Simulated assay, not measured.
Amino acid sequence: MDPEMEIATDEKALRINLDPAKYGTFAEIGAGQEVARRFFRVGGGAGTIAKTMSAYDMTFSDAIYGRANRYVSRVRLQKMLDHEYDLLIERLDRKFGNEKTFFVFADTVAARSFKERNESHGWLGVRFQSQPRAQPSQIIIHVRLLDEGNVEQQEALGVIGVNLLHGAFYDRQPEKLISSLQENLAPGRIEVDMIKFSGPLFQNVDNRLMSLQLVSQGLTNAVMFKADGETVQPAEVFYKKAILVERGSFRPVTYATNDMLDGARRVFLAQSGCSEDDLIVLMEMTLEHLLAGGQLDHPDFLARVDVLGALGRTVLISRFGEYYRLAGYLFRYTNKPIGLVMGVPSLIQIFNEKYYTKLEGGILEALGRMF
């Protein structure tokens, strides 16, 4: 890690340690206790850290947080935050409640394994008070760890954990907090593909706009939210599902758009043998579609998304200009059939070789990746 980046991360951790109001718990599962370690290492941790713990063994973890179908999941993270925050208030509110703003940081992570090359990812969250005895607010994120080595992944996890805590405490503007998440990390080390703000401090925050910020600021290539506006991480939705996706600007959604999708759905179900319950239908907008006017127009974006939501559609926002990149992204999450719905103009564009000059195999490589 670059020495200057290391120093900058330590400065953030030290600022929190020297803040007399901050006091809380660190609960980390997987990839070591890398975030807590940062705070111990810089000094002054006794004034900030009430407890650290790491329940690696599933039996211990289940005994503390309850049983889980998947241990690296949003559900598990939420149980960790709930349990540790309630315990913190129960044990320390009477003693420190008038002077401290309590917080809980938790993460559950699957880092690079020695036995297999598993997907390296994790869920991180912080629940915190903005004032003594105030109702807590919360931020959760999902990250993909992109380093090849286990040690490097642990290091990156520690940095983004410090960034998340520092942003929650001192960068109350969500857009600024999002931009700070990758500070002191070299490009390509970590991806943040889901974020959710909740609680009184963020009651006016629209998480769909925050998801859009992740894409526009380059923290990820794609984000998703369901028809009800709930932000989701792709693996939560795509796991063991067939996918049918239609790309467009949806400004507006036309009868032709819906007719084409409905027809494609019938053909796809018949040819793939999938059931309706095993199919996810997506409406995808690229960043290029949203920047048609030269800049992001948030009201226009929300208007399009609201219409799609009213139609019961799940929305994907991506940076994938080429269809083969979209297909590659979807194949990462499922081994079930994937269908791309498009009209004749889009089909003609696929065979335009100018889009594949950066690929060594040109159009043949692109088609191979797509199919």
Rank of each mutant, 00 (worst) to 15 (best):
L302V: 08
N163W: 06
V307A: 14
A134E: 09
E34A: 15
T52S: 08
R74K: 05
V305S: 13
Q173D: 04
G361F: 00
G47A: 09
D277P: 02
G362L: 05
G24T: 07
F103V: 10
N204C: 07
A327T: 11
D297S: 14
G328P: 06
G24D: 05
R133Q: 09
N98L: 14
R313H: 01
S180D: 07
N118F: 03
H166E: 08
L296Y: 14
N258I: 14
G263K: 10
K95T: 15
M370F: 02
I29V: 10
F225Y: 09
M5C: 05
K22A: 14
A186T: 13
R15I: 04
D193F: 01
E191F: 12
M58I: 10
G125R: 04
D206P: 03
V205S: 13
R41G: 11
S318E: 06
P200L: 03
Y170H: 04
L367T: 07
Y71S: 04
V223I: 09
G293N: 12
Q173T: 02
L77C: 05
P187T: 11
P3L: 11
I317R: 02
V307P: 02
A327I: 13
S180H: 13
E288H: 00
K12Q: 15
L81Y: 03
Q135Y: 00
G321L: 14
R208Y: 05
S179E: 10
M53A: 08
S113T: 07
D206S: 02
Y71D: 03
L287P: 00
F102I: 01
G32H: 11
Y23C: 04
G97P: 06
D82M: 03
Y255H: 15
M58G: 04
L326G: 07
V281A: 01
E119I: 15
M342L: 15
M342I: 10
V159A: 07
Q213N: 10
P132H: 05
I140W: 09
T59Y: 10
M342C: 13
Y323P: 08
L92N: 14
P20I: 01
D306L: 02
L214I: 12
G229D: 10
A366L: 07
D10K: 15
G339W: 09
F103Y: 10
F301L: 14
E236Y: 03
G218N: 02
G312W: 06
F301T: 15
E191S: 15
S54R: 06
P174L: 02
R144P: 02
T314S: 00
G343M: 14
Y56N: 04
L347V: 02
T25S: 04
G309T: 03
Y71V: 01
R304S: 00
A46V: 12
G43N: 14
P187F: 07
A55R: 03
D300L: 13
E148M: 08
T286P: 05
R112Y: 04
D171V: 02
V215C: 01
A8M: 14
K95M: 11
G24V: 05
P234D: 08
I348A: 10
G66K: 12
S113D: 05
V35R: 04
Q173N: 02
